[in-house]
Design a protein around this nucleic acid. Structure first.
Lengths: 139, 139
DNA sequence: TTACCACTTAAAGTAACTTGAAGAGCAAGA
DNA sequence: TCTTGCTCTTCAAGTTACTTTAAGTGGTAA
């Protein structure tokens, strides 16, 4: 099994990032190892791809680039304990749960609106739609 | 029941927005009615609060300000049908479901990492943590 | 050889706000 | 009455995380 090298666009495809985002992350110092080059072009091995994937996953989890830098530096810091990484992850997971909850609520309201608007509204004109109130949070 | 007026900060509190965001939305023409003023200060009645709430909800549902302008203009457009609003809502709900799915996955991975890192890792140093691989998407 | 394609850098543009500076209205306290 | 403090006002500039654009390079296919 060979440790194949990928171009930036292949790396992008593999990780779900864009090529320009990968360049940006490199600029911002988020790729610990300086990216290897052949003929001036970046090449990514499987390890580099994995690092990019993790980066993307942490972003999807709502971490900012600053958060991620902190996470990475903890990971490399010889004095840091494993528990400190776990704590960061726990905090982030809790935040995510709150976000997911809000989004589920929003999704439900949109879905209800769409279905009521179609079936119960009785108005043919958008400007007279009375179901729009269902979109408004009941608080 | 009086139609009480609110200051911008009260409106912010009621809707979950910030005062500066509300000013920004007004600048961007997202508040259909020109906001009423007393002594040069904005005042928001219950209708205005409801409009802001809807705006916030649509943002929470992941709609961009451009999306929302489109939604509003459909709503006011005498020629538009009610179904066209429903369609926008349906599209948005579907997108939200996809986002929620991705976020649940990310949450699960973070949570697993935190718990494995604490209980099974056995390493005391973050730099040697072998559970970090669990964070990486298995694709 | 010419055309094309994916890559390169650097700089500028974008969305959705936030922050900061400078100033005004008004209530409470000395 | 004066002053302190609070919240509001506008306008400009800053922020995050990229994307887009412009101008140029290297390798390959026709």
């Amino acid at each position: 099994m060979v440790n194949k090298d990928f171009t930036i666009s292949h790396a992008a495809q593999k990780t779900g990032l864009t090529a320009s985002a990968i360049r940006y992350y490199e600029d911002q110092g988020l790729l610990a190892k300086t990216t290897a080059r052949i003929n001036g072009r970046r090449v990514f091995d499987t390890k580099a791809i994995a690092d990019l994937s993790l980066l993307n996953d942490l972003r999807l989890a709502g971490m900012t680039l600053t958060d991620i830098k902190e996470f990475q530096s903890q990971r490399r810091n010889a004095g840091a304990t494993c528990a400190s990484l776990a704590e960061i992850a726990q905090h982030r997971a809790a935040k995510l749960r709150a976000q997911i909850k809000a989004m589920r609520l929003a999704e439900e309201r949109l879905r209800n609106f769409a279905s009521n608007c179609s079936s119960q509204c009785g108005c043919s004109q958008a400007s007279q739609c009375n179901q729009i109130d269902n979109l408004i949070k009941s608080s």
